[in-house]
Each structure stands twice: as C-alpha cells, then as structure tokens.
Design a protein around this nucleic acid. Sequence first.
RNA 1: GCUGAUGUAGCUCAGCCGGUUAGAGUGCCUGCCUCACAUGCAGGAAGUCGGGGGUUCGAGUCCCUCCAUCAGCACCA
Length: 877
Amino acid sequence: MKKEMEKTYKPQEFESRIYSMWLEKHAFDAEVNPEKTPYTIVLPPPNITGSLHEGHALNHTMQDILIRSKRMQGYEALWLPGTDHASIATEVKILDKIFQEEGRTKDDLTREEFLEKAWEWKETYGDHIFYQMQKLGNSCDWRRMRFTMDDVCNRAVTESFVRYYEEGYIYRGERLINWCPVCGTAISDAEVDHEEKQGNFYTIRYPMKDSDDVLRIATTRPETMLGDTAIAVHPEDSRYTHLIGKFAILPLVGREIPIIADSYVDRELGTGALKVTPAHDPNDYEIGMRHDLPIINIFDERAQINEEGGVYQGLDRYEARKKIVEDLKTQGFLEEIKQHDHNVGHCYRCHREIEPRISLQWFVAMDELAKKAKESVEKGEMKFAPERFVKIYNNWLDNIRDWNISRQLWWGHRIPAWYCEECDHITVAREEPLKCAGCGSEKITRDPDVLDTWFSSALWPLSTMGWPEETETLKYFYPTDVLATGYDIIFFWVVRMMFSGLHFLEERPFHTTLINGLVRDAQGRKISKSLNNGTDPIEVIDEYGADALRFMLVSGTALGNDTRFSIDRVESARNFANKLWNASRFVLGYMKEELPPLGEVELDLSDRWILHRSDRAIEEVTDFLDKYELGMAADRIQEFLWNEYCDWYIEMSKVTLTGDDEEAGKGKLRVLLSVLEDALKLLHPFMPFITEEIWGYLPKREELLVRSPWPALREASQEGLAEMNKLMEAVGKIRNLRAEMKIPHHKKGRILLEGEDSLIEVFLENKEYFRVLSSMDQVDRLQEMPDDTSVILLDGIRLILPLSDLIDYEKEKARLEKEIERLISEVKRTEGKLANQGFVTKAPAELVRKEEEKLSGLQERLEQNSQLLAEVKKKIR
RNA sequence: GCUGAUGUAGCUCAGCCGGUUAGAGUGCCUGCCUCACAUGCAGGAAGUCGGGGGUUCGAGUCCCUCCAUCAGCACCA
C-alpha cells in the first residue's frame, strides 16, 4: 500500500504534503451539528503589521493542541482564524513605507490614496501570516476566516457604536486625553507606556503681586508654565496659608495667577507649591476643574508652541524648554536645576513622549460596563488559567477611566457620526444619512476619525460569527470556550471582549482565559525589535520541522510562566520525533498481513504491563489537558513513548518477534501496534505532522488521524505486574553492576535465583527478558553456591551472578560498601522517625506501618549485604 | 509606592492540597556503531530546593521576614 518509511525522520519531506491533505479532506471544517457539542476557540487575530514571531507560535500551538484534542474527543471543534487591521500600528508602518518609496508624507496624500495603499499592504502581509500559520500546523477552519475590516465585522462595529450611543454609553466631549504628537492622534490610557527617564527639577521663583514675596516652585516641565493659570498649595501648609487668595505674576509672561488651596498638593514634594497647568497635565486638569480655572492650551497637534506662547510660538516642546530655561536664568527667575528621574508616558507604538492635551474626542463610559465585566468573573462565569491573573483583570477594572475611542487616523473603522453645518446636532446612524436628523439640512459631513483598534477587537467573538444577525453559527458556537492570549493584553482585550459580550448578548464570550507566558530569547531577554533577538518560526520549521518547534514551545514549562526559546531544546524535540519515527519503523518492519484483534491475543506479562502503562498515560495526559497543563501533558507522552514503550517494551518484544512462534509473533505485533496507535493519538495534538504521517503507514487505516477518536482505556488484566516491576528492578541492578565491572554487552552472563518461589517462577518464565535487557543468557534456580559471585539483593529474591573470570573483588567490595553506607543512613533515618513519639502518635497509622515495614526490609538487606561484604573481604585476602 | 511572579543539579525548567532516597531534559564523565534509532543504547557523578525565623510529629512544599531578579499598575509638580 505504501512505500517504506525513510530511515531518518525528515519533516521537510512530508509536513506540507500532510497539511495539504488535511485541507483537501476538510479535516478542520466545523459545521453546525446538533448531534455534537461545540467547542470553539476564536483566534486572537494577529496584526497585519508584519509576520508572526515565536510568541504567536506558542499561542497558536496551545490553541491547536486544545482544538485538536477536543476534535478527537468528539466535539464539533471550531478554530476560527482571522487578522486584525491594527489601526495605528499599521498606519505608521504604511506611511513609513510610502515615505521610503515615494518620499511622500501623510500631508501629501489623500485619504483615498492612502487607503488604496493600505489594502495592498493588508493583502501582502495577511497572506504571509496565513502561510506561517499553515506551516505551524494550525487546524483552523479557513473558510470562516475574518479580517477586522470585513463587511461582516464592520457591520458589528457600526451596530455596537450606534447602540452604545443610543443607550448613552458613548458620548463626545472635550477632555484631557493622551496625545501622540508624532502619530498625530489621541490614544487611550492603556496605550501609554511609562518609562523611567532622566530629567531635571527646575526651581523657579514666581514673584507675588503687591508684595516683594517670592513663591518658589519646582517643576520638571518648565515650558508648560506658559499655560499656568494658578499656583496651588496645601490648605494647611503654614508656609503658604497667608498667600492663599493672593496673586502671583507669571514670569516671562506677566500674567496674574491666583494662589489657591488644594489638598492634592503634597507638602513634602518639591517646594510644596505647585504650578497648575490644566491643559497639559492630568492632575492639574483635575485641580483646574475643581477651582474653575481657565484652561490655556499652549501646544498645537505637533506639540509646538501655538499663538498662546507669544515669542515662543513655533518652537517644539524641547526647544521651548531650552529657551525658556535660558530666559528664566537670564532674567533671574531660575533658582536651581537638580537632576531628577521620573516616569514619562510614551506612545506604545512610536515610543515618543505623549503629551496630555485637551481635545474633542469620543468616549465610552466605563462604570457600568466595567461592573458587568467584573461581576461575571466574580460569579465564576469566566475563569483565568492560571487563576492568579484575575488580579490583573480586577486591578485594571477598579481603576478604569472612560475609554477614549476616537483616533485621528485613516486606517480603521470610520466613526459613524455626521455633523451638521447649520445646527449643533450630531447624527449617529447605521447607514449614511442624507440629512441632519436635527434640522434636516443636507449639509452634513462625516467625522473624519476612526475608532480605536480595540473597539473592533472587543467585538471579535461576536463579529466573526455574524452578529448582530442571529446566524446559525452564532447560535451554535457562541459563547466560545477558551480565549488564549498573553498576559500583556488582558486589559486591552480580554476585559473589553468581556463587557462587549455581556452587554450585547448577555453572556460572557468564553468560560476560560488561558494565559501563556512570554517567549524569551535564550538569555531570558524579552524579544524586541531593538535587540533584534527574534527568530522567524519559519526558519526553525524549515530546519527542524514544525512538530519540533511546537513541542519545544509547550514542553517543560508551567502554565502562564515565561518560556525560553532555545535551539538546544528544539533539537531535543526533533530527536524525540526521530525516536518515534524509528520505533514506528521497528514495528512496521515486522508487520504481517493479518493480525488478530487485540481481544483475541493471549497477553503475556510484558503485554499486560505495557497496556497498563499505556492506560495510565492516557488517563494522565487527558487529565493534564483538561487542566490546561499542556507542558505536563507533553512531557508525560514523551516519557511514555520513549522510556516505557521504546526502552522497555520494544526491547522485550524482540524475544517474541525474533522467536519462531508465528502466532505469538502476530499477537505481539498486535499489542505493539495498538499501543503505538494510542500513543500517536495522544501525541497528535502536540506533533500533528509526524503522527499523521506515521499513521498513514500503519495497516488498514482509512481514516485520518486528525479525525480519529481519542484513545479509550484498554483495561487489560494486571496480573503479575508486581513481579514485573521486580524483574525490571533486577534488570536495573544487573546493568549497574555490569557497567561498574565494565563487562561488555556481548559478554553474556548467568543468573542463579534464590528466594520466594512465586518470584523465582516468574523470573524463570520470563528469563529471555534478562537476555535482551541485560545480556544475561542463562537464568536458573540456585542449586549450589558457586565460588566467584556477585550477589544482587532485592526484597524477596536474590540474584547470584557467577562471574568467575570477570569479577573484580576490589570493585565488588567498593560496591557493597557503598550500598551498606546508604542502607545505614536510611536505617538511621527511619529508626529516628519511629523513635519519635510525636510521629508515632500523630502521623496517620498507615504511614507509621509503612515506615515500620520499610525499616525491617532495610535491616534485612543491611545484614545480608554485610555478610556478602565479609565474604568478599575473605576472597581478597 | 502597590500588586504579582520567579529564585530547586553547570544550564533550562518540573515538582509544592506537607509524608519513601527532591525529578526531567540538556551538558559533563564512563562503556558501547547490540540486527528501529549514534538525532542512538547502557551506566555514573552532580542539588544545606535564595537567607533567616515560625507553624507542625514532619517543610522546596504552609506562614512571616529579608535579599535578588522580572513584570504590571500608580505617582512623582
């Protein structure tokens, strides 16, 4: 049926073929199916600003593992993919590109010209992102792919804006907002990054009107004094109480400004007197509101001094600072300059300092929506995995301010509001209105601004499914199950999806938020453009295969913790894949035409053992997956496949496979095959390509692995497993001894058994295992003690190894002494424990009994070892 | 300043509803090209579980405190 498997695992030769096959056979398509329970994940849409990085690879792998395992577990599993237009980030990049290619800036372009370029960009980068996702193996239903600026999504955005507006949540108002003078737009509080910056504290003398007094004021931003409209002091600050109500003269400007009392002022800080610039500082703005102060805006939208600044007009903020400090100095107003480090808000996109600015913007009132979002989590409707992230969520909701949603940009959803030239009325509508809803005038113009990217992201689980229409998809797949994302966007996105879903559909959009850590570089640094320490996942995939990359990303880290990206670990994962590849080749190499069904196979001890181990692996992996412990699940499968299936069972199976009992051989193959099949299923969500490829080589397989059912427990008889464990322990001891004596593997050996009959029986029945596992080709019951021996002691049985020409008594002595030393310390520990009245009376009886048993066993072995040592010492003499 | 995380073998990390001799991968050392695999096999060495205190019969595991590293939030006139 198929060609033979290559000798070495070469993922490059089959990964893309396998992926195409999945697509051809519609393996990822999810349909509305009342017979099944839906399981839905909506992909956090990657920004079309560029390509996917390792962080995406981790995030996508986690989702794919969940989706693939649920699909196999019988759910109608939908993973809905898409991309995000990323308003500000993309606009910045596109303008950059246009400038580099054509030398034109935004001022030289019309909105239409720009948008045309933007859509071209979207096609190019969007396609690359899909290519990357397919290389990774993402099992998305591509037919349902969405873009945040699709018609379907646009409709949801307009609908929610209009509804929020009609319900009074959205309003337009003049507020102090965060303004990025470089991007030329307002940004929300969440989009401001605070960075520690070195700055100066300037102490300036403000002369009082009508007296010779001087008020000393410390500031980090002297240039904003042009907009000062008051000086605030603490109402109980005895240094200044006599000045409250009087006026000072603003240096350089000459304006009279009042001294006011406000308890916001910190008496300890600076001079205890605060210049108040309501137009350029959030706290000053609050003070200004409280005291009804005039607001003087001194900057234009590029943060250059405007006409309010008199002689300083036209200077940008940094030039203005320099010039004003100079002038203050020459005119004798500057008292001192002190170095002072402080946090300054920066634009999260262009990393330039943001400027607080009074501006007319659209806002979403957050009080009620935040309450809904918080209550839902409190009621347990949505849980974080791991739980601790609920604190970030709550912390943000507790301190939330109204959300500024308008952006002075072109790339995005244009605000559906029209202004009338003849009256004050604002028309907010789903469709473009012909006339003003207030006065009927046809002279209306649309708001030029677009919405914050996150406004559409907030609707993602709804909009992708066709909301506000009540589509079948929405009814069946909403609410979704899991939202997988990094902790850095809990408040950008998780919070906002929560209240959007709760508000519009009265149901939280997902029951679990799965938080993945950051992927750091090999040195543990955050991946950043400035360090250029990122790696394109495609490069890793081309070299090692997507399976290795995926496995490396999820294995060995706990949920929510950061992961390091290391090529060494990718190699380990690739080696594991190679191991599986070769184990499969081994099994297939012995394949026969017809094998009996597992139920008809006469199972031997090793079969029962591996079926039992396999059942435990199935149980534990399933359990880890249910708890989102993907790293633990991955490690557990690897342990099973490598250490149990390959290292023990395959080795033991050689006894039967190379024997001449054909029936037994077929039975053995059936077990090998069944266990391998189950393991491939368990591993498939983690390493989808290699498992599907191997599956294709297995006999009589019409179904794809991706669509196969999750393994069920085999529940074979567990008879003899205790003896099996004893046998394996004996093998370990023999290997250890042979290694220490440096006996080469081709040098066979003999074992004589003494001890409990039942154990001896089992050992004799399975003596071939000693041959394949530890090169001991003769196993017999002890008749007569030979001369030159080494003795291995286990509870219940002694293995006597006649090693005449091989034994090195010095080494044997050392081995026994080491063992005795270990036993003595153990005995002491255990005796101490049992001598402790507290332990005996308070610890659980079961535990005390176990300790007692342990002690007697230890003592017995200690005694026997001591005897052996005495004999060895005699031999040496 | 507040909150959270992290600190366990050379390195990367598991473990922690308290209870055998603290695990894995990798690296290192030793011996093996044993008929699936040298991307491998077998064996071995290696850790006062960040410091201190407490609770307990018993503490990497719970509590307190300190130190170090990281992250988020707030504020800094």
